[in-house]
Amino acid sequence: MELLAIIGALITLAGSIFLLLGAIGLLRMPDSYNRIQAGTKASTLGTILSFAGILLIMPGWWGKLLVLIISVIITNPVSSHVLARAAHYMGVPLTKTTLVDKYREEEEYIAVKDQNNEST
């Protein structure tokens, strides 16, 4: 029992380290999109590991923790995708070292198509 609690605490600690690295990533990355990348990934695994650690300390909570882990896995990528898409629509600039932006071309193509539809 004691041993399980120690292992659980260590796993929770590992999760917190990932969350900390995610926070550092948020500060160090040069533009919104890279920040979203750092934020999403680190927070997903960090949260899962934290919950897994709590699971070992409190085995009775497994059902609720499983629900939490599933909702984190499903909602985290969706929210980061929506943030990135909204940022791109608003014209938030990409960092200077960016190599390509295929999505810009697609957006322009859609805008032109919409204009044509309106004029006809």
Binding site: R28, M29, P30, D31, Y33, T97, T98, L99, K102, E106
Partner: peptide, 10 residues
């Protein structure tokens, strides 16, 4: 050195 090399691909 923050080794990133970002871009948007399809």
């Amino acid at each position: 050195s923050l080794p990133i090399n970002p871009g948007i691909v399809e």
